[in-house]
Design a protein around this nucleic acid. Structure first.
Length: 521
RNA sequence: GGCCCCGUCGUCUAGCGGUUCAGGACAUCUGGUUUUCAUCCAGAAGAUCGCGGGUUCGAAUCCCGCCGGGGUCACCA
């Protein structure tokens, strides 16, 4: 079917152009990013353009500043459009609210050609009709009341300034056949397709008219959108026919759902981009992860770069199944990405993350849940900033394999930024394996070594070796000789590598903690 | 409810009529490395391919029916 006239078409093969049409609602949905990602790979792979078009035809839903949220999110993921309101391009304007005259022109053209008609029905009448149809067990549809108004009647109402919309005329008793790239041919009974409103009474178009007009005028060759549009696909197909325009390729992608199969709702944190950003996920990891939803690498690779994605991606391999979002796997993947970072990169991204969390409020529908307090972000940031360069790098080094997302940094690294109480609980923890006397003697021994140390990492590692050897001497298990030291230094039975931690903490603080612990024993 | 889409381990998926009594990844469990926590390594368990009929020498792969899930039925996108 696709190469029937490929010979004639060869000379005018169109450049691939994809488009993302978010409506600015005030927060960025993961699904929007999923769409953007596919738009972007496909355009990039084919040397085409990825267009951003703001679909703001619903003035009732206008939210101040919402557009910036979209730009910020696309930026974070590096899914930068080639064209759009702030990116420029030759097919502008890229906000639908700035293209009203265009939609008006085509809507009127359709009316003139008898493919659409004015409708003067009131909201009340429409509601009534709908209610009655439902009572009769029929599918609620417009009853085509105004479709058969005479020209004179229409003109009279128009002259009288009656409020009106424009509806498209859907043919009767026809089969509308549409083609979806991944699902193939889909047939619809035209009698079940509503005479959709294409121009609202406020002079704004509905989505249906706007997309068709814009996609055509902007030379879009691949319409990539969510599966929720399949049902209105025949309306769009009709509009293309009515306008005499060639159809782009339509691709209805899968949609990402929750683990229970319900859809990602705005109320849930993990639906919004900002949630991932504040949790401390890496955008590349999130992208890699969602790329694997509804699609798989031809060699079944799990982790790959954007460039590799571009190389091997093919729209045709997209699945028609709606995947569930498994955050556990995302965590694993993010951890993998963390480990590939150099220490410098890790620190760089960590700074950016901390700065972002300090400077910005959460952009999402619900409260953001975290075990970090606002002060924590500031404390970690300040502590890190005042640290010597070699200590910073070591901090990155020891944390990379231990952290899946930046939020995991606490409580593991509490010892660096917080003081703990030397109370009964602490003593109890310290004496878990040996009694007070034994531990005291042990800690005095190492405290002495530490006090005489220059606290270079090399020397500390040397002391670590001595501790290990001491296990044999005193007949303790290796774990038992390190345990009380760890509790003394970290106030906890878990910590990053002990002697590296001491190095980062610095001699003064370490000695202070030993003194306090010994005093209490 | 009508119409449309979808249905392989708990999850993401490979598979596109025959070296597949179904392969990989996450999660789970076990063992190893390790001074804690992680990382890393090895291994185990886990799917009668939604169900029932066909077609075929042979079906997860093709056809039909059923069931289940989802989407959609707005002057929202």
């Amino acid at each position: 079917m696709k190469n029937s006239n490929s010979v004639q078409n060869k000379s005018k093969i169109k450049k691939v152009r994809t488009r993302l049409g978010p409506s600015p609602t005030g927060f960025a949905h993961l699904g929007t990013i999923y769409q953007a990602m596919i738009d972007k790979v496909w355009a990039e792979k084919n040397g085409g353009q990825f267009v951003l078009r703001i679909e703001d035809t619903d003035i009732k839903r206008f939210v101040e500043g919402a557009e910036n949220v979209i730009y910020d999110s696309l930026n974070w993921f590096k899914l930068i459009p080639d064209e759009g309101p702030i990116y420029g391009g030759e097919y502008g304007p890229y906000r639908q609210s700035e293209r009203l005259n265009l939609y008006k022109k085509y809507a009127e053209k359709l009316v003139k050609e008898d493919k659409a008609y004015y409708c003067f029905c009131s909201k009340e009448r429409l509601d009534e009709v709908r209610k009655q149809q439902q009572n009769e067990g029929k599918q609620p549809m417009y009853d085509k009341h105004c479709r058969h108004l005479s020209k004179e009647e229409v003109q009279k109402k128009l002259d009288a300034g009656e409020s009106h919309v424009i509806r498209m005329k859907v043919p009767e008793n026809e089969t509308i056949i549409v083609e979806d790239l991944i699902r193939g041919t889909i047939e619809f009974d035209s009698n079940l397709v509503d005479d959709q409103v294409i121009m609202k009474s406020d002079g704004f178009p509905t989505y249906h008219l706007a997309v068709v007009v814009d996609d055509h005028l902007m030379n879009i060759t691949y319409v990539i959108r969510g599966p929720e549009w399949i049902t209105s696909f025949p309306k769009h197909k009709l509009l293309y026919d009515y306008l005499g325009w060639e159809m782009p390729v339509f691709v209805h992608t899968p949609i990402i759902n929750n683990m229970d199969g319900s859809k990602l709702s705005k109320r849930q944190g993990h639906a919004s981009v900002d949630w991932y950003r504040r949790k401390g996920y890496l955008p590349e990891a999130v992208l890699n992860f969602i790329a694997l939803l509804g699609w798989s690498h031809p060699e079944e690779k799990e982790i790959f770069s954007w460039q590799e994605y571009v190389n091997v991606f093919d729209l045709k391999n997209l699945s028609a199944v709606n995947p569930k979002l498994d955050l556990k796997k995302l965590d694993w993947m993010n951890g993998q990405y963390m480990q590939t970072l150099t220490n410098e990169q890790f620190l760089d991204k960590l700074y950016n993350w901390l700065t972002y969390c300090i400077d910005n409020e959460y952009v999402g529908a619900t409260e953001y849940e975290t075990h970090w307090t606002k002060q924590d972000y500031i404390d970690v940031f300040n502590w890190l900033r005042n640290l010597d360069e070699d200590k910073k790098l070591l901090f990155a080094e020891i944390n990379k394999p231990r952290v899946k997302i930046f939020e995991d940094l606490l409580p593991l690294n509490n010892l660096f930024i917080k003081n703990f109480n030397i109370d009964e609980e602490f003593i109890e923890l310290l004496n878990k394996y040996k009694n007070s006397e034994e531990n005291k003697e042990h800690l005095e021994w190492i405290a002495d070594l530490l006090k005489n140390s220059d606290f270079s990492l090399a020397h500390l590692k040397n002391i670590e070796l001595q501790v290990k050897n001491r296990a044999d001497e005193v007949g303790w298990k290796i774990m038992e000789v390190f345990y009380p030291i760890r509790v003394t230094v970290a106030g906890s039975k878990v910590s990053p590598p002990l002697f590296e931690s001491m190095f980062i903490l610095g001699k003064e603080k370490v000695i202070e903690r030993f003194d306090k612990a010994l005093e209490a024993l």
